[in-house]
Write a protein that binds this DNA or RNA. Structure first.
Lengths: 220, 220
DNA sequence: GTCTATAAGAAGATAGAC
DNA sequence: GTCTATCTTCTTATAGAC
């Protein structure tokens, strides 16, 4: 049964690099170290391999939601943690999110595959949207909402605030997926982004010291 | 010579919906109203059609830069315009940028095609990055920099400010490309984003009236 | 479960008449 | 320039031996 799983691994790698149509069953088999016909003992056909990858990813997404909570929907349990969050902790939050998305080998390859295949199948576009747009916005919106309630951050529109927090992360992610060499630069930008985000949205009381340096802005 | 151009049009439409590998020469020919072999009188082969699309788009990109200036590199000539820009004008700027990217039929299809094919050819990833990430950030960075110089906006880090302005636009664009039905919602979000952006980055003097409504934030 | 041989079919491209 | 007929190649998938 190890071969069955290795087929999935190698197929995902190839699909994420070339797209489904440009990968031949023989390519996958070669990487696994078998001949193409042998592969049909493990999966009915090429499409079945693709479907198994999607299924496997769904399983992992559910795990994630429970463990890392990046896409979880139950932010309220973390309420206490975020009531007194500092700028450094906010940076850590953004960093963890970013690096998980970027470095987890399975999600990275899966995301690239989705990017290529999303227009080919509406269902895949839905998965992409849910996983990289709607769920992160929803979960982070709850976290930031808690911080607003706790008086750490301040805004009249949490939804836009969340967009301001996440969309730069999303954009930096799309950059790194295409040009991995820009990762170091992206991480610097990410930190600068969160610092500035914090400065813009932090309650006055929390940035009293900063004001001494500013030209009369945000006096308290 | 009209047929030659129609081939490009129909090919781009199909490539943007299914990806290069999933479109057959016969599909393109059928849309044009000819048989597949006739198509080879106009283009050497399938790849030549794809290459011609890329070339055509490069030509259009250059035109754009000159006309709409969305990706232009000579923002300084527009300096005077942006020195006294209002919030509504800023919204218009973001709206125009967004709607151009979204509604220009050629760029829309081209962007979707690039999204699908970018990992297949490094050159395409480069075009994508330049057109939808680096150039917009560069040009808008110059515009926003001018507004900072003119005292309309205020920040210590124009680069991050530009990221805060553009990345939500980029993200909303990727949403609409995948789910056109969300366009109306995206436009509302876009306007709210720019209003909040303006509120966050505008110099105090420009938002004196707003402060009356705020809970002690940004007193002047 | 893996192999070789091969069937079945798809898709790109050409030949040559009109 | 467009057509029909056809070639060629590639790729998926199956058959059947080991």
């Amino acid at each position: 049964m190890d071969t069955k799983h290795r087929i999935l691994e190698e197929a995902l790698t190839l699909f994420s690099e070339k797209g489904y149509a440009n990968v031949f069953v023989a390519d996958i088999a070669e990487r696994v170290g078998i001949k193409a016909p042998s592969l049909y003992k493990h999966y009915k056909n090429k499409q079945a391999i693709f479907d198994a990858i999607i299924e496997e990813m769904n399983r992992r997404f559910l795990e994630q939601a429970g463990a890392l909570r990046i896409n979880g929907t139950d932010a309220s349990v973390d309420a206490e943690i975020y009531k007194n969050i500092s700028e450094d902790q906010l940076i850590t939050l953004g960093n963890d999110l970013f690096l998980y998305f970027l470095h987890d080998e399975y999600t990275r390859r899966f995301r690239k595959m989705l990017t290529i295949e999303q227009f080919h199948d509406k269902k895949l576009a839905d998965v992409y949207m849910k996983q990289y747009v709607d769920d992160p916005l929803s979960y982070q919106g709850m976290l930031l909402g808690l911080m607003v309630s706790a008086g750490v951050l301040q805004t009249e529109n949490v939804e836009i605030m969340t967009l301001h927090f996440y969309s730069p992360i999303y954009m930096l992610l799309t950059i790194c997926d295409r040009e991995p060499k820009r990762e170091a630069e992206a991480l610097k930008t990410l930190e600068a982004h969160i610092r500035q985000f914090n400065m813009l949205y932090a309650r006055n009381e929390n940035i009293v010291q900063d004001n001494k340096k500013k030209s009369g802005r945000r006096k308290s």
